[in-house]
Structures are given as C-alpha cells and as structure tokens.
Amino acid sequence: MKFVRRYAQLTPMASSKRIIWVMGVLLAILTVLGPVYLLVKYSISDGASINTGGRPIPFWPLHPTLSVYGYLFSDRHFYTVLGNSLIIALLTVACSMLLGVPAAYILGRYKIPGRRLVLLGIISVRLFPDIASVIPIVEFFIFIGAHQTYWGVILSHTLLALPYVIFIGMGAFETIPQELEDQASVMGANRFQTFYSVLLPLAVPGLAAAAIYTFLLSWDEFIFIYFLTFGRQEMFTLTLYLNGLKYAEPQNLLAATSVCLSIPVIAFSMVVQRYMVAGISSGSIK
C-alpha cells in the first residue's frame, strides 16, 4: 500500500488523462504482442482451424496440436539446414571477435588522432545498402572462387557484424577505470599482460553481448546468404528454408518454422537488450 501511494505521488495525473494513457499503453501492447501471439497460434493449429471453409478463423485453435513441429523435426533436410545456420553463425562470431576485439580495445582505451573520423567511417559502412553491396561482393567472390562456399558467407557476415562488435566492444573497454591499467603497469605487467589479465576479463560481459549480437545477425541474415548460395540447396540456412516454404506449404508449417527461427533470437535479445538499447541511444546523442 505504501508502495502504491508513493507511485501515485510520483505520477500525479488527472483520472481522465490516466485512463487515456492506460488505454494507449494497452493498445500498444496489443499491437506489439497480438501478431506474435497469432504466429504461435498458427504454429499449433490443426488444418481445420486454418482452412475453415468461410467461417472466421478462431483465435485459439479448435484442436491444438504440435504435429507440425513433429513433422519439422523428422525432416532430415531440416537438420542440415539447422546445422548450416549454426556453423555459419558460430564461425562468423569467431571471425568478427578476432578482428573486432583488438580494434575495440584500441578505440576504447587510446586517444588516437582521427578517432572520430574512424568511428564515422565505421558507421557509414553500415549505412551503405546491403542490397547494393551484395552484387559487387558476389561478383568478387565468383572471381576469387568463394561463391557458394561457407567461407564466402562467413566473410560477408563478418563484414556486416564487425562495426557492431567494434562499437559494443569499445563501450565495454571504455568503462574500465584507468587506475587499474596504471596499477598493472606499476606492478610490471607489459601491455599484452595488462590487456589479457586485467582489461579482457572486465570487458567480458560487453564482449559477450557483442558475440551474441553477431550470432543473431548471422542467424537471421537473408540478403547475403540468398545471393551467395543462390540455388544451392545443401547450403541453405534456416532463413532460406523458411523463404522456400512461403508459396507452397500449409500455413502452420510456415508458422512453426518461423517460431523455430525466432526462439533463439527472442531469448538472446532479452539478454543483450541492455547493450542494444545503450548502443542505439548513445549513437543518437553523440
């Protein structure tokens, strides 16, 4: 009760205004969650709840069933696809971290001349349209023989993820107090020791967020994988598998595949949300 009273003091508002505000929040929540709920509902629907023969589609399936998931996980091709998605995403994380973490360390700890320019350049790389850079990159990969290979896809995904790794990682290194670094050097640690045993462990939470972000970026990337594997079925990832379903298959299968694609993303996003929010917000103020 005390809590409620304090809350009321915090937000003095006329009751009519409060009602409008509450309605607004509820409507917004409905707009956001409604479609997501319907996606899950479709994935557990039986055929009769989708092809209703003119009757309105129910908001809860007539006979909820997990049979579509059963079908999906009995399909051998689905496991190949899942494996492809995982391999590509994990190797993309490895490459991006290998390139990105040292860069983030320098940009986060040193006042180098032209730092702003470097950061601006990194952002503007991300503003260049993927759909425009995919053609030259595919042509280049055809030229060097990396077209329709895993390495081609991984290199291109690394290109997409690297700016984010640098930015998120830079934030992680920036927040570590200078005194720790000074003390380490007073105690005779060289630069690499300081980096490896003092800075890196402290930056791990931020770097983990960067790694998860990279994983997700590669996991649901579509444009590059679509162009780079065009027509080569055995390299398909989950996004391409889903895209292949859109015109022919029953809608509950479409929805179930969508749910499989989204679950890791939603789960991990909740973990890295804090960093994502900070990244988007700080980018807008600076």
């Binding site: 917004a28 929540i29 956001v32 969650l33 479609p35 997501v36 319907l38 996606l39 479709y42 989708i50 092809n51 209703t52 003119g54 589609i57 996991w219 649901d220 579509f222 996004t239 889903l242 895209n243 859109k246 809608q251 479409l254 929805a255 969508s258 694609l261 989204s262 993303v265 939603i266 996003s269 909740m270 949300q273 994502m276 929010v277």
Partner: peptide, 27 residues
C-alpha cells in the same frame, strides 16, 4: 522490453507473419 520484441523478431519472420495474417480469402 515488450515493445522491443518486433525489433528482435527476424525481418523474414515478420514478413511471413504479415503474409499469413493478410491471406486471401481467409486471413
């Protein structure tokens, strides 16, 4: 956090979702 869900959902999934919800004739 709830409001951030659309951002977390893969764009392809959102597109498929719209595809299913706006189906003809029975979406």
């Amino acid at each position: 956090s709830l409001f951030l869900i659309p951002l977390a959902l893969p764009a392809l999934v959102t597109a498929m979702l719209i595809y299913v919800l706006f189906d003809y004739p029975g979406g």
